[in-house]
Design a protein around this nucleic acid. Sequence first.
DNA 1: GCCCAGGCACTCA
DNA 2: TGAGTGCCTGGG
Length: 303
Amino acid sequence: MKYNLCGNNVVLSDYDSFVISQTLECGQCFRFEKIKDEDYAVIARGKLLHIFADNGSIVFENTTEDDFKGIWLRYFDFERDYKSIKETLSSSDNTLSDAVKYAPGIRILNQDFFECLISFIISQNNRIPMIKKVVSNISQKYGKFIGNLNGVDYYSFPEPEALSTAAEAELMECKTGFRAKYIIDAVEKVISGDINPEKFSSMSTDEVRSELMKIKGVGPKVADCVMLFSLGRSDAFPTDVWVKRVMSYFYFNGEDTPVKVIHKSAYDKFGIYAGFAQQYLFNYAREFKIGASDKKKSKVGTE
DNA sequence: GCCCAGGCACTCA
DNA sequence: TGAGTGCCTGGG
């Protein structure tokens, strides 16, 4: 991977396995706005980033080398060798081979723990546009103004202390619905140190999952999302309805299979790459509506 | 108006 | 230990 400085921009060339839209729109994060094709505003780590593709390069607009190296390199997971991960997954499994070919430019983002935790608590029983709206509402109300792009104001996701001032009724006004009390419980546990990501480093993935599930509104699915997208646990395998469908469809003869069974088979098959496999499969399943009712289903491989 | 969405808590057997 | 049910909200 190579980058150079060009005026106020950092320009990334000679990279692989990265397509902005595939990485942002594969359901792992909620803090981005599409400006046009391969041109996005991204909010992360208290910064507003304008990122776009230009003649095969990726431009990080108005970005210092310090921010690029200190924030974005890690956020977009550019230090990881995705070629070998994709080869490993594809070589042993035809389904994965197809799923990887379908979206070879997905990278697993390294998001902020607290933001990721609250965002995926909000995600339960909810749709992506709605999740984005709720996270944005919370940021606008409790976060800090960080900039304007194309006439749109952007706000950072609040620190735990800032969000702790929120009453349940106020969170409801942000359209969190029944999840408001879950958010309050999560904030309390983070501030008290009851939930402390620094302590996680010495724990196994199963132990971290149990810790996270002490928070109200955090079950196995949300815990695995938080571990995969913000704690670098690549063996986490978030099993939501789509992953359940795609796994049942391809590995269990289309039979409705319990999440526990799916979870175990994923770990047996993919091991420490389970999280990457999940992301390729999830994207593939959602795009082709694999396993959804016939009305919604489109034919695999015809698009 | 009804149904459901990237789950989870709660209840009851 | 597992199955069944309700949940804010808004778009189809």
